[in-house]
Nucleic acid binder design. Sequence first.
DNA 1: GCGCATGTTGAAGTTCGCTTGAGGTACCGG
DNA 2: CCGGTACCTCAAGCGAACTTCAACATGCGC
Lengths: 129, 129
Amino acid sequence: MATSAIRFYESRGLVHSRRTTGNQRRYPQAELRRVAFIRTAQRVGLSLDEIAEALATLPDRRAPTKSDWHRLSKAWRPRLDEQIRRIELLRERLDGCIGCGCLSLRSCALTNPGDAAAARGTGAVFLEP
Amino acid sequence: MATSAIRFYESRGLVHSRRTTGNQRRYPQAELRRVAFIRTAQRVGLSLDEIAEALATLPDRRAPTKSDWHRLSKAWRPRLDEQIRRIELLRERLDGCIGCGCLSLRSCALTNPGDAAAARGTGAVFLEP
DNA sequence: GCGCATGTTGAAGTTCGCTTGAGGTACCGG
DNA sequence: CCGGTACCTCAAGCGAACTTCAACATGCGC
């Protein structure tokens, strides 16, 4: 990946480096892991700010232990599950609901009694989430 | 959602509107579905270009039928599966690999004989995907 | 039919996530 | 020691995805 991106992350405090006597950056293993984490999280639709916040819970100057990462993992699980849920929602919408006309028919609430979405009103109630 | 966003989508050809005699936009149901689709797809990490490409396969001027959406659904399934896979990769990395030191130990290939990732070399072989 | 919220256009501005450029320094092979 | 490549900093630029603005038109409630 581009060095400029890493410098950019560093300027935002997402990664850190030590310097050589000649002022060149050197990255310990732990920082490479942070970069890998950033890249993957980004591709999943998370913002740098969100990622920065998560990384801020890891120790800055010592290498994170397995349990540090594990703590982060636990904290993010709901966020990742939500993201998966969104994909499944999209899939559902593509496969069924969007094609069946339920968004346009008031009767949808009738053919699906107890439908939680219908209770939120007719129309595209899922637009925001 | 902001009207400016919808106008922006329209300028990019992702949605269409008919006009009143007074030149105001009116959106049929089918267009609202396109908007819902766009929003959801975006939150899952897909770009407007990618979304536009998909929407281009739907009929422009008539309301898409269930089978139109179904076709789109089939075409996107691998893309969505890939996206889910990425989230799972992130979860895995958080939970296990990244914390266990396997990215830094040459011995990882030994303790995991037949490891496909190890065959790609030591280090962060998954950085890109 | 008057007033005012809401709509229209095109251009310019904003935020995010980088990339590029200018001007200078450091390291490395021969 | 020399030359070339890689790195440094800081500022400006860029593409994506919108938002805001100005100047004007429309439509709805009373």
